[in-house]
Design a protein around this nucleic acid. Structure first.
Length: 250
DNA sequence: AACCAGGACGTGA
DNA sequence: TCACGTCATGGT
């Protein structure tokens, strides 16, 4: 079975262009006309993160965004930024209650505050051992409370440029709606589908995941989980890109 | 006014 | 291993 994963990628890239993930707070240009730049995206520039601080910010964001929309994460990051807390040192030392207050907009603020301190401790420890320049093992990320498979892969892919494909709810939904999956597959199985069909390329992996999210945000044309066989009809009627995706791939 | 958002963990079968 | 409840704020 040879699924057209690259064709889908080309269509998405042709439609939306490079997404400039992962957005970085201290990269924001408030005066820019481009909303992307205002919000810290850096389309076409793959040279980020450029500092340990930016690297850490990606890790923080990946925790905060768990089952939460990105605008909420931006508010939490805003709070942390205003306190000057977007570093492992500050997060570790922060008192519990004000950290919770800062993180509150992102939801689950009790657990997320705790888990931010856990991952901050991890970053700090790596820094003290002068390991910051080399990527952590996936297994040691997974060992941290609050870091599951998606968060680990996000950190590795976007913060450390490791070729790990990120699978999230959108990825699964797209794959299911295109008939590539049934929907009941495990994280690893979904990941394998993409990794096996694509060249192991960091920029490709970064853009593919970002494009999937962008597309399904813009075109939430399908139910959360679609376990039925491919269903072209309902989507053609939506008039969104996914319809053309279907026609191309049919 | 339900439903969902760039999940992960703890528990019991 | 796996299904299920829990965590929580703010948009549509």
């Amino acid at each position: 079975m040879n699924l057209p994963l690259e064709s889908a990628y080309k269509l998405l890239m042709g439609e939306y262009g490079p997404q400039g993930w992962w957005p970085l707070f201290d990269l924001r240009q408030p005066d820019s006309q481009e909303l992307d730049l205002q919000r810290g995206y850096h389309p076409g520039n793959y040279h980020y993160p450029q500092s340990e601080k930016q690297c850490f910010e990606i890790a923080i964001g990946s925790i905060l965004t768990q089952n939460t929309s990105w605008v909420q994460v931006e508010r939490a990051l805003e709070n942390l930024h205003q306190k000057g807390w977007l570093t492992p040192e500050k997060i570790v030392k922060a008192d519990e209650s004000s950290l919770k207050q800062a993180v509150r907009p992102a939801g689950y603020y009790n657990q997320k505050a705790e888990r931010l301190q856990i991952i901050a401790r991890f970053f700090l420890e790596r820094k003290e051992r002068r390991l910051s320049s080399s990527p952590p093992e996936r297994s040691e990320l997974l060992a941290l409370k609050g870091v599951g498979p998606e968060t680990a892969d996000s950190i590795l892919l976007y913060a450390f440029h490791e070729p790990e494909f990120v699978v999230d709810a959108y990825t699964r939904r797209l794959a299911v709606s295109l008939g590539w999956l049934q929907g009941c597959e495990s994280y690893q199985e979904v990941k394998e589908l993409f990794v096996a069909a694509l060249p192991r390329d960091v920029h490709l992996f970064q853009e593919y995941h970002a494009l999937i999210v962008t597309h399904l945000k813009k075109c939430p044309a399908h139910p959360k989980v679609q376990t039925q066989p491919p269903f072209y009809r309902s989507l053609k009627e939506k008039g969104c890109l996914l319809a053309s995706l279907y026609r191309e791939l049919a």
